[in-house]
């Protein structure tokens, strides 16, 4: 098995939010790096979900239990409140059924962790002012081939949460591994939210 020693910075931030021995569902789990690290270092249990069978194979190689599935059709395989944390890392902006997945995450889990590239980041705004759709390290696509169809800024995501009775428990905004506290919607390129149902 491939040992995962160090995690990518954004995944490490997510991992820090996950409680030891908790049940984790990682949606769009890719090669299973996050779950592999969590299983080893925090004794978590759970599953990854990915659309791509090759990622399921990579997960198996990393000792992670992955279930091939399409997030667009919901999370029918999972019963209510099965998980402590449900993670959706840099995927929500590429989904058709954005609102549905957010609601589904908090149906099957107690807490959701959602991360996405912040469209309000100043470099994106600058490129738009120059007359082009933004292309950057966090948004490495041209307008005509991007999988990202639902862009949002911090305030937009927070408004969607309010609309669905979802409470933001914690928010971190990063720019290249640095946490941004001052003017986050302008200076931050990546947003991290920990959210739960209200009440």
């Amino acid at each position: 098995m491939k040992a995962t020693q160090t995690l990518r910075a954004d995944l490490q931030l997510i991992a820090d939010w996950v409680a030891p021995s908790s049940r984790v569902l990682d949606l769009g789990c890719g090669d299973g790096a996050l779950l592999s690290w969590l299983n080893r270092h925090k004794a978590t249990r759970g599953y990854g979900v990915d659309f791509d069978v090759n990622n399921v194979v990579r997960c198996v190689e990393a000792g992670v239990n992955a279930i091939q599935g399409n997030l667009e059709t919901g999370l029918a395989e999972f019963e209510n409140q099965r998980f402590d944390h449900v993670v959706l890392s840099q995927t929500i902006q590429a989904m058709h059924n954005t609102e549905q997945i957010l609601v589904e995450m908090l149906r099957v889990g107690r807490e959701a962790i959602v991360t996405f590239p912040n469209f309000g980041y100043w470099e994106n705004r600058w490129q738009i002012l120059q007359g082009h759709m933004p292309v950057s390290e966090t948004i490495p696509y041209q307008w005509y081939n991007t999988p990202n169809i639902h862009w949002c800024m911090l305030g937009d995501f927070e408004a969607l949460c309010v609309k669905n009775g979802i409470r933001v428990l914690e928010r971190v905004v990063m720019n290249e591994e640095k946490r941004i506290h001052f003017l986050p919607n302008l200076r931050g390129s990546l947003a991290f939210y920990r959210v739960a149902r209200q009440g």
């Binding site: 198996v60 279930i67 395989e77 099965r82």
Partner: peptide
Amino acid sequence: SREIVKALVAADKEVVYGEIE
């Protein structure tokens, strides 16, 4: 097969599922 997977998840079992093209 997904019915089996769903039941295994609900029963808290470890499961890997592949849906092969």
